[in-house]
């Protein structure tokens, strides 16, 4: 799947949870949402991108995907 699509999806999810002032809770929200709604292959691809580059991800999305990787 195009990484640009996955990055946009992750950033859009991050935009919703960004309203939460506690960024740990926000990142947890993003991470959980991706875990519960993305096909595992899509998760693997975004995690790989985040590790290799990740520059197009928002800060919150990047934090969340790192959490996802460690889960």
């Amino acid at each position: 799947m195009k990484i640009e699509t996955l990055v946009k999806m992750a950033n859009d999810i991050g935009n919703f949870f960004n309203a939460e002032s506690n960024k740990d809770i926000a990142a947890e929200g993003v991470s959980k949402h991706i875990l519960r709604s993305w096909h595992p292959k899509m998760r693997r691809e975004i995690i790989a991108y985040c590790k290799e580059d990740g520059s197009a991800l928002s800060e919150l999305a990047r934090t969340a995907i790192n959490k996802l990787d460690q889960a």
């Binding site: 799947m1 699509t5 595992p40 899509m42």
Partner: peptide
């Protein structure tokens, strides 16, 4: 026990 592909994901895949 993993989510499957949504319709737009199917098209991209």
């Amino acid at each position: 026990d993993e989510p499957g592909l949504r319709i737009p994901n199917m098209f991209d895949a």
